[in-house]
Amino acid sequence: MEKQAAVQSLTDTMAKFTAYIGKHLPTDVEKKLAELRAKETKPLAKAIYLSMAENQEAANRLDRPSCQDTGVIQYFVTAGAKFPLLGELAEILEEATREATRTAPLRHNAVETFVEKNTGTNTGTKVPWLDWDIVPDDDGVTIDVYMAGGGCTLPGSATVLMPGQGYEGVAEFVFNVISSRGVNACPPLLVGVGVSTAVETAARLSKKALMRPVGSHNADPNAAKMETLLEDGLNEMGIGPQGLTGTNSVMGVNIESSARHPSTIGVAVNTGCWAHRRGRIRINADLSYEILTHEGAKL
């Protein structure tokens, strides 16, 4: 394939995939919501779960974004160093965002800061936001597309604890964020927690944690244990869908971590709303692709 044709082909795929994830929830999230709905006993909470299911059905039938807030588009790129379009990828993703904005259509959500003008294209300075990881011997690329609305972005919080506060301090921080600000963020939430050195390292990990499937666990046994403890504990609070109280509070808690400075514990929390619109696509060197998050998806 000529380079220009290849660029056009990948732009087209990514535009379609970006539009697609705004209209369909990933399979793991759909299953979890069905499970939470089945377990729910409070009448008002059950009615909310019913509205949610009706909404997803209508979004599918009418081919529309299921939530009006289609976020500032974020792409988490795990790029093989030998991927043929590595150098073109940033521009491709920007153009794909513009294209998806027109075709889906997506809400215009890029406001240039200080100028305070909506660009009307969902592109702007450093938007779509790109996050890169490089894999040395790979010739493909895996991309997570994520749309977080303003509602579930607002609770986001990070701090640096003193080691004396320990993992007890981490648990307390997570609970404080969710009980005070998570209530307005369209629960049941997926809670992403980053444990690291500083605010920015913890914050990045907390967002990466939201790219992990619902129900998956951190490979470290202590981190996995903490995920379960926090999930069970938050559920015991009974926040329910939309904070209207119910049998559960969250879809899960995912923790990602790095080694840390001995003098600090950086901790961050990011929340994903129930309409957790993320999708993972694997693109091969010949630009064939596989969608990894949505069973039976067709672009």
Partner: peptide
Amino acid sequence: FNAKKGPILEKIYSQVSFI
């Protein structure tokens, strides 16, 4: 929710003394 938080956290604290 806030009233429930304290007792739930107390149960968690005793299980996350990883340091």
